[in-house]
Structures are given as structure tokens and as C-alpha cells.
Design a protein around this nucleic acid. Sequence first.
DNA 1: TTGTATGCGTTATCAG
DNA 2: CTGATAACGCATACAA
Lengths: 353, 353
Amino acid sequence: MITYRCVVNYNETKRKRFLQEGAKVVSIKDVAKEAGVAISTVSKVLNNYPNVSEDTKLRVMEVVKRLGFVPNTVAATLSSKNSGRVALLIKLNVETQAIDEIDMQYISGAISKARELQLDVITIFFSMVENMTLDEMTRYFVSQSIKGIIIYGMSKEDKVLRQLIENDTFKTVVIDVPYISTTTSCVSVNQAKAQYDVAKKTIKENNCRKVLYIAGTRDGYVTDARLEGIRQLKEELGLQVLIRNGNFSELQARNITLKYGKNKDCVVCASDLMAIGAMKALIDMDIFRPVCGFDGIVLMGYVGKQMNTVRQNFAAISSRAVEEMQKLLDGEEGIRVTMPHELVRLKYEEIIR
Amino acid sequence: MITYRCVVNYNETKRKRFLQEGAKVVSIKDVAKEAGVAISTVSKVLNNYPNVSEDTKLRVMEVVKRLGFVPNTVAATLSSKNSGRVALLIKLNVETQAIDEIDMQYISGAISKARELQLDVITIFFSMVENMTLDEMTRYFVSQSIKGIIIYGMSKEDKVLRQLIENDTFKTVVIDVPYISTTTSCVSVNQAKAQYDVAKKTIKENNCRKVLYIAGTRDGYVTDARLEGIRQLKEELGLQVLIRNGNFSELQARNITLKYGKNKDCVVCASDLMAIGAMKALIDMDIFRPVCGFDGIVLMGYVGKQMNTVRQNFAAISSRAVEEMQKLLDGEEGIRVTMPHELVRLKYEEIIR
DNA sequence: TTGTATGCGTTATCAG
DNA sequence: CTGATAACGCATACAA
């Protein structure tokens, strides 16, 4: 029996369309009936269970295709202990929209892969869960049937998140945080190596000895790793390195450069935005010093001067993170995944479309 | 009775934490039991039903708070005909990450408001549903329990989407598309007026007569509206206007400017990216012409020359779209919402953080 | 005003 | 290999 919902402006056109397209949403029940099997059998076919004869499998699939049946995700997650949703937890940099590009790549990379793997993902921002206690956060995620969380932009100060990760209630994949456990994987480029590479290239190309290194925030996980890369390079080449914290701020990098840039041979920055700030400062000071950045954002192509930088494929990183999440949800243990990076110079002529 | 899941490395620490925090997720059933009422009563309290005595209401709320109960969204959407999820359908510009900023603002604006309104939203990209027929798309959304769709970046060529909107199967809110119906609302700034305003300001400031107008794509809804603004201005001021389609491409705008810029007094562009392309072309041509853009993206602050542009508050637009969606889901009819815009000049010094 | 019972569309268990 | 049937957590029509 079909139940008709209360329709107000009910006219012939609508009625026709209604009957034509069939208002009834086909469910697993319909498929079962049409194929002459039990609901459970259809479910088994759809979820690739063993112990289903090739014959009925084919018959069911035929009906599924013919009726255009698409299983209801919501019902599945409610019912199943295995399937659940994955949350993308993203720290949005409200200050600088110039790097929204990065988060957007993260999001699209994750969502695309999630669709491929039939994973249900929802996007959440740090601001929505900050100030929550561990309990509150846990309950919040549980109430959303979230089984796994992928975390972008986490810093050492995010204590509750740290607990969440260690707590094993959810499977977690962290980006750029050097932590793994049975339930936590980590995906990242080799930060130290990348920083080492880009700095070395810049320094070699310009025969530098005195280096100004503008680091990120003190509580950033990547900051340490990148500093380590610089330390190695310093020892290897016997450099003289002045280190200052720019906190990933373009403005602070600018000011640091205005203050120390003159007596240095080059400026190595832990982010593109800071590199841009440094470069603009040097232009204002009317002196030239090679500058290099980190990330490979498009903005680098718009500032006039070319700079070396590290290009990270954020979409690929995020895509991989989703794959790792799938593995964790399947019961595998957490691993550390190192993604490749490349050195580039972004030129306006090559960026423009 | 509590069921213990199979735990492998079971040790004392974990056990302690386990018992302490309570592995059992509190459900509406627990609340009901604890408060000494029926499940339905709890549900009624939570959903603000009338006909619940103030007394039991208080008692239930107390328990809810004490147990830290958070209703399960998934179960709710599965159960109720009213509550459902909302999809953000976004056209990602894969070519130019420079404007990811806009989509990011859309996403964060929507998600924040959705959380406020307790709406479950999921993000979807055009690429994931393109090539689908209306039926396929419908089934896809239905299978996700999606009741409403907010569409960003739709063009006239998206025929299936057009059908989807007219089809009334889902509630829809379109951004920048002049279409409303009982089930469709539209949110947008006044495109014509905004284009008129920014062009007029630029033209007046520089006493221009011969204008090069670089429009967007032929199949873009905003393109027509913005052209209309230019036409009005042309008549009002008796301008001589050459119109060319730049298709929102920085490169095309550059080439158009290289070709026609010299004989014009100024270049009015239908987007910031095109304005930047035009400006860079003029610099290469070593001539000065005032240029104005549209959108107010951060990149405008990085190109050296200041330009007038229209700032749209994308987050606010998106936030409003979610509000309108809520109304549609509540049974209200679609309306047209016009959001405010402002004229700005983006200066590097003011953008930098 | 409150409680009972049924359904939402799946998955999972277990008997056949 | 297949089929009943009980969950999953909540909403809601209807009975009390």
C-alpha cells in the first residue's frame, strides 16, 4: 500500500510526474520481493558476504540495477556496528583566508576518497568543539555515530584532542602530528627532510652563509621537525643561523625580516605566507635576499619575486588519510605514512589560467 | 546488562578507565528509566512538544544534563519524516585554487549555522554527481536521507540540477541563481546594483568614458545580472562600452586587456581574478588604467595596485542560506533574499596579519 | 498529561 | 546456502 502525503497545490502535472517517476523510494524490501529472496539475502549480496550462491547473487544484482536501488546510508550506520561516519576535524585559520586553499584541498581530497570508499564523512571545525571537555566531545561524536576522526591542524596545546586520540574511543588519523598507536595513524610529508631540502637548495644557489630562519609557532608539531631539518643543514654546511619565531604570521615575518634581514644572506621561512611577508619587507628595504617558503600555495605566484618552496599535495595527503582511516576501521593497527614532497618555484605565468 | 566487546590488550589501566568513564553510551532509554518516565515522554521534552507538564519537563532535563545525554542524530533522521540532512552542493573550481577562499567561506558559514540550528549537513562536490541522470541523483540524495540541498556555483548548463530544483522532491536553496518556488529559495547580493556601484565609482573617480567590460561566462547566472548593471550605467552616463567574455579566467582577461586595453579609459571586470589578470597585463603594457573587480578576495591585496571591488560576505550568505533551508523544511514557501554588499579597496597593509 | 506500540531501512544472529 | 527475526535509537499515532 502506498501512502500519499498531504499535498497542497495538487494539480494534474504534478500528479502525472508523481505517478511516472514513482514516489515510492525503493528499499531493500522491494528488491527482496522482486528477486524472490529474503531481505537478509539481499543485504548479504550487497555487502559481499561469503556463502551466497553465484546464482542468487546475479539475480539480486540484476534487480538492484533494474530498480535503481541505492541502500540507505543512515539506516546502515544505525544498524551496523562496523559502518560508521568519519569526521574531518579542521582547524580553520580565521585570520588568513589566503591559505584557505590548503584546507579546501584537504576537504576535497578527503570527500572524494570517502565517496570512493563509501564512507560517510562530515566536516567539523575546531571552533565547534573547542571548550568541550573530553567527555562532552566524546558524547558529541558518539551522538553523530562517528567512529573515526581525521584531524587537521592540531597543535600541542590541544590537550583534549590529545586525550581523545589516546583514549581509543575513536579511530583517529592525524595530519602532521608524529603520533601513532593501535588506533591512530599519522600522515605527513617528511617535514625535516623537506625543510632541509628547500633550504639547502636556496642556500647553495646563492652561496649563503648567514641564514635567518623564521620558524612557525612554538606549539606546532611541524615546527620542531622543520627546525630539526635546519639544524642538520647548519651542521652539514657550517652555517650561521639566527632563529626567530614568526608564528606563521605574515606580519611577524615581515617585522623580523625588517629587523634582521639586512645582515643575513638569505631568509628561510617555515611557511609561504611568512616567506611572502619577508619578501615584501626586503622589497621595502630595497635590498635583495633570496627567500624560500614552505607549502606551495598559489599566492606565491602573485608576489612578483619567485621563491623556492616545498609543494605538498594536500589533497593526496587527505585522500591517503581517509584510506588509512578505512584500514583502522577494518581493525588494522595505526601506522605512520610519509607522503612525498617536491621543490618548486611558482611563477605567475605558470599559475595563471 | 553490559556487553563487553572483545578487547585485545586488556590491562589494568584500560580497565580502570573503562569502568570510570562508562563504556555504555547513554541513550534515550536510560534517560527515561532514570527519570522514571516513558521514552516517548523524554522525546517530547527534547523536541519541545506541548502537553508536557512543567514538572516532568524539569525532571527529564535534569537527568539529561546529569547523564550528559546527547540524542543520536542518525537514529533521529532515520525515524522522523521531518528531520533530515542538508547537502551543500559545491562547484569546485579545480583550475584556480586562488578562489578556494570563496568556497571555504561558503562551507564554514553553512556548517556553523547548521550546528546552531541542529541541522545535519554534508558537503558534496559537483564532480561527484555530474553525469548522473535526474533519477540517479534523486536516489543518491534520498539514500543519504537528504531532504534539502543548498547549491553553490550552479550555471545554466546544469540541466539536471535545474530539473532537480523544479522537481520539488527536495527543498533547495540556490546561491546567485534568480529562481524561487514553493520549495526553492534564492540568496544573493544584488548583482546588478553591485556591478553598477563599483563600476560607477571607478569611472567617476577617473573620469572615464571608454570602458572595457570583461564579463564572466555566458552560461553564468550572475553574468547576465552584472551585464545589466553595466548597461544601466552606460545609459546613465552615456559611456562607450566594449564588452568581451573573459569566462572568469585570469588568463583570458589578461589577453583581452592586452588586445583592447590601450584604447580604453578603464577596465571593469566581473571578477577579482579577471581584474588581477587585466591589471598585470596593463603593467606589462606599461600603461596605467584603473581596473575594478568583483568578490573581494584576499588576493587583491597582493598584486601591488589597489583596485575597487565588491565585497560579498560569503560566510554570511551561506549562513543565511541555511536559515532559509530551515524555513523551507519547516514548510514555509521559498523567498528571494538579497544580501548586502560593500565597495572596498584591498590594501596589502590592511590584509596582512 | 503520560505511556504503549509500531515503524524507519538496514545489519547481524541463528535456526533451518 | 537461505530465511526469519531481533536489534539500532529515536519519533509518533494512538490508547489510557
